[in-house]
Amino acid sequence: MDVQTAYQKTIIFATIKHLENNQTITDSNLPYVIHLSNVAMEILIASNHTDNFDLNFAVQVALLHDTLEDTNTTFEELEIEFGLEIAKGVSALTKNSNLPKEEKMLDSLDRILKLRKEVWAIKLADRITNLQKPPKTWDNLKRRNYKAEAAIILEKLKGGNTYLENRFQTKIEEYEAYLD
């Protein structure tokens, strides 16, 4: 399947799943699919700057990356619809809800590190897109913790995708403007 067909099939699936929950981007009425497409856009651009990058795989995982965490989609459903490798990538990017909050991110990063570099790139792309203006409800401590967590993600995934690592570093620095 070509990348365009894979993108179209996957974005429709992800959009339907996120619409079932009426999920929007925090502090807006914008549909959640905008976040998903922004992550996929980061992946599309990164693929032009990365050798041996499986864009077809990466764009599908990017568009699906929040389906297990934020919708009623099951691993089995992803496996049937998109294949085992894509389901495993999405699963690694999903925080384990059974763990204490402070362990969730590191657990996910440990699982990501065991998979292909494209999955690493998706985590970087996801956080790049999230390092925008923080939600109005976040206090300064929450914003500082989010920035610190971003630095941990960057350190853990170093060597996964130079282009996205450089973009991520810049976004972390720019995020300083939102801290008191």
Rank of each mutant, 00 (worst) to 15 (best):
R111S: 14
L36C: 09
E20N: 04
A40N: 10
V90M: 07
H49M: 15
D110A: 11
L36Y: 05
I25V: 14
M105Q: 14
T71L: 08
A92C: 09
D51T: 05
L68C: 02
K104I: 10
N96K: 10
K114R: 15
T129F: 06
T67P: 06
T50C: 11
E118R: 02
L93M: 14
L30W: 07
I43G: 00
P100E: 05
V90G: 13
L93Y: 02
T73K: 00
L109R: 08
T71V: 08
V61C: 11
K95L: 10
W120H: 05
N56Q: 15
K114P: 01
T26N: 11
R116G: 09
D110W: 06
I43A: 06
L109V: 07
L36Q: 08
F82C: 01
N22R: 13
V59Q: 02
A87G: 03
E103K: 15
D126S: 11
P134A: 06
I80F: 10
L64M: 15
L68R: 00
L44W: 01
I122L: 01
L115K: 04
I112G: 08
N48F: 05
S108K: 06
D126F: 03
S28C: 09
V39N: 05
G89T: 06
E103I: 07
K114S: 14
T74G: 08
D126V: 10
H65F: 07
D54Q: 14
D66K: 02
E77A: 03
I80T: 15
